[in-house]
Structure formats: structure tokens, C-alpha cells
Nucleic acid binder design. Structure first.
Lengths: 152, 152
DNA sequence: CTTCATGCAAAACATTTGCAGCTGG
DNA sequence: CCAGCTGCAAATGTTTTGCATGAAG
């Protein structure tokens, strides 16, 4: 995915420095995975990341992708988005919790512009006594394109 | 789980009549699974349901549990709650989307009393052009009990 | 050099599917 | 009766793990 605003660069550099400060090794495979996570805005799955990196590193294994994802999740630099079917998709461009729109037909994932929900966690914490650490808010339905085709 | 208000009964009867009207057979195994879903408020997983029903029907198979869950999901009489680890939990007592509080330590699931979020889907629909059919809103953290023990 | 990472294969899970035989209505 | 259900076992798909080899720092 294109990254017109250069935020992907920023994300990439940040992720690298966080790995470095924790003394994790910057191997070529790892860098390639991190770069996709930093720049890609389509919320790829592990195997989609695998296929893309494998074009450059044909010997790459899925296990390596998962191990890198695990590291970045721990560091809070990647958001894991669980699907109803049990698979996961990843977002390293916007690593903090945010709402998603998930199309049940084409399976694309969108990041809507919605009013801030930042207070949500604090509100719930206050009201329930639960110590809230993160949340997820996902909407399932049909994107405008698929809603159209459904009728036509 | 106890069901002091009799809402579980109501749910049970409703689920039965919906199955009947669609001409699905009311086998003893199926009834036992439905009854747990209607009354249980702990959000059990498929295998938890399986273990409980197996006390009465030792030959029950997990496949049968899953097939019943599939039916009830289709009918909108059971809510499937996907966990980050890929497993699912089920709620036939409150089958419409509602927020959950999920404790990362004891793994219990709570139904908080929160202000209505019913308009949420409509709001998002208006703002994004997406045809919203359902949603999920989950908070992850530590329940009051586990937050206490964490310190102690 | 010495850790840590890689890549392979096997294991671990949750869930689905195929099918022979059984049974609810 | 007989379409639909059950239960078993095998298949599926995703993620994790164990371990020998290899490379980053």
C-alpha cells in the first residue's frame, strides 16, 4: 500500500528502534516483515505477510512471521485483529485499539473516521471497577460496493 | 447458573419454538445443548457445553454441539463471542450484540451495565455508508478480584 | 564467539466435514 | 417410513513448539 503521508516511514523507524533498544536482532527477514506491518494499511493476515515477504526471501517460513508478530504484539507496536473465523489480521500502522468496519462479503477491513472513543475505556473502568487495559470495537456488514452488488 | 428471573425459561421456550417452526428435530441431545445455552450466563465455550451435556448423554459428540451452535447462530438465537486466542464462547441468554468485559487473568466474561449502545450501528452506518449488520465491543483487562490479587 | 534467529517438521487446538447407521415426527 | 440427526474419525486451517543449523552483533 502507498504511504503518501510518510507516516509509514515514521512507524517503520519507531518499530526498528524499539526492537533495537530491547536488543532483538535486526535480521533481513525480520526487517521485511516489520516494513510491511509499518506501511501496509490493508490489515494483512499472517499468511498474506508471509506470501509478500517470500517474494524477496523465498526460504522464509511462516514460523518466522509468527515469531516476529509475537514480538511486536508484546511491544505494543502491532494490533491483532481477531476474525470470527478464528484467523487474525494485523495492523502496525495504527497499533492502538480503534474501531474497524469488516465487510462480510469481500472481507476487506476499513478504518472509519469516527468520533473519539478514547474515554470509553476510562468510562467503563469507572463504572464497573474493572481495570481496563484495551478494547476492541468492530462492525460487521457490507461495504458500500458490496451492498450495491448484492442488489444488482 | 441460577436463573432467578425466569428469563432463562423464556429463552429456552423461544429457542425451541424457533427450531420447531423451521422443522428441525428436537432430539434429546439438541434439547440439552439448547437448554444450557438458554440458561447459562457464564458464556461457555463449545467444549464446556460438551462436557456438561456429556454428563447426561455420555455418547454425545463435539460435532453435535457445533452443529447445534451453527443452527442457533443462523437463527440469531445465540451470540458467538470470539476470543483473541481463537476460541469462541456462546451466549444464548443475551443473543443480541452487547459489550463484554473479559478478564485476562481468570478469563471470566462479564456483562456490564452500560448506557445503551443501540444507536451505535445506525450512527456508523450513516457516517460511513457501510451497511452495518452487527458489531462487537469487548473490553480486556482485570476484574476487580484479579486486580486485587495481582498486587497482594 | 556466543547468543539468538531461522526454517523445517511435527504438534497443538478449535472447528468442519463425510459418512454409515439410527430415530424423531 | 425416510429426511435429518448422531457420533465417529478424518480433514482443515491457524498458530505454536522443538530442534539443528546459521548468522547478527
Amino acid at each position: 500500500m502507498a504511504d503518501r503521508e510518510g507516516k509509514g516511514d515514521e512507524r517503520f523507524r519507531r518499530m526498528l528502534s524499539r526492537l533495537k533498544e530491547r536488543r532483538f536482532r535486526l535480521t533481513p527477514q525480520r526487517l521485511a516483515v516489520v516494513e510491511i506491518l509499518a506501511r501496509d494499511r490493508t490489515h494483512p493476515s499472517a499468511s498474506e505477510i508471509y506470501e509478500r515477504v517470500r517474494q524477496r526471501f523465498p526460504t522464509l517460513s511462516l514460523a518466522t512471521v509468527y515469531k516476529t508478530l509475537f514480538l511486536l504484539k508484546e511491544l505494543g507496536e502491532v494490533l491483532e485483529l481477531g476474525f470470527p473465523d478464528g484467523s487474525n489480521h494485523y495492523d502496525g500502522y495504527h497499533p492502538r485499539p480503534h474501531p474497524h468496519l469488516i465487510c462480510l462479503r469481500c472481507r476487506k477491513i476499513f478504518d472509519p473516521e469516527l468520533k473519539r472513543l478514547d474515554d470509553l475505556e476510562k468510562q467503563v473502568q469507572r463504572r464497573t471497577g474493572f481495570r481496563v487495559l484495551s478494547h476492541r470495537l468492530d462492525f460487521f456488514g457490507l461495504c458500500p460496493e458490496c451492498a450495491k452488488e448484492k442488489k444488482g
